[in-house]
Amino acid sequence: MPVTPFHLLLVDDEVADAELFEEIFREDFPDVVITRALNGQEALDHLARSETDPAVARPQLIVLDLNMPVMNGHDFLQRAKAHATYRSIPVLILSTSSGAQDVQRSYHNFASGYAVKPASYAELQALIQRISEYWRGAVVLPRIEQLTD
């Protein structure tokens, strides 16, 4: 029986961080398909393409950095959650910032969760394990086709 892929949109301008995140997911969870965007505008563009192009998968989870050029994570989150079609897609903030203002602003703009980027490979691997267990197993997410209603 074929495994249904889980689509994740990773929005992070730090290429090394994104590559490490993707490498860990690829090793431990080969059914996860990761699409990367370098900033919030690229992420919004991807979401818009997913509405019109069947070859572009709508993500089931967005993992979002906050500090990026062009459009930062806070602005992306505010715009995405204001859009009826994207509102149901969970957004997990994964940032180097542990500042109370960033955390509060993220949840105020309807982030689904907030995690601080760990300093070591082993800690990142453990965090990704928990992310996967939670978002791909512990919770019920809307089916892709339900996200368009």
Rank of each mutant, 00 (worst) to 15 (best):
A43N: 01
A43S: 08
A43V: 03
L44S: 07
L44P: 09
D45G: 14
D45E: 15
L47K: 01
A48L: 15
A48P: 05
A48M: 14
A48Q: 15
R49G: 05
R49C: 13
S50W: 01
T52Y: 12
P54G: 10
A55R: 14
A57R: 13
R58K: 15
R58E: 10
I62R: 03
I62E: 01
V63R: 10
L64W: 05
D65G: 05
D65V: 07
L66I: 14
L66T: 10
L66E: 06
M68N: 04
P69K: 08
P69A: 12
V70H: 03
N72E: 13
N72H: 09
G73A: 00
G73D: 01
H74Y: 09
H74V: 06
H74A: 11
F76R: 02
Q78F: 05
K81H: 04
A82R: 15
H83F: 01
H83I: 02
T85Y: 13
I89L: 05
I93Q: 12
L94A: 02
T96H: 03
T96S: 10
S97F: 10
S97N: 08
S98F: 02
G99P: 04
G99T: 03
A100V: 10
Q101K: 15
D102H: 06
V103L: 02
V103K: 11
Q104S: 10
Q104E: 06
S106M: 04
S106V: 06
H108T: 10
H108Y: 09
H108W: 09
N109H: 14
A111Y: 04
S112G: 07
S112T: 09
S112Y: 04
S112L: 02
G113H: 09
G113C: 08
Y114W: 09
A115F: 05
V116G: 01
K117F: 02
K117S: 02
P118L: 07
Y121W: 08
A122P: 05
A122T: 08
A122H: 08
A122C: 08
E123C: 11
E123H: 13
E123F: 08
L124G: 05
L124I: 07
Q125M: 03
A126P: 07
A126L: 12
A126M: 12
L127K: 11
L127H: 05
Q129V: 14
R130N: 08
E133I: 09
Y134W: 05
Y134L: 13
Y134A: 04
W135T: 00
R136L: 13
G137E: 12
A138S: 12
A138M: 12
A138Y: 08
A138Q: 14
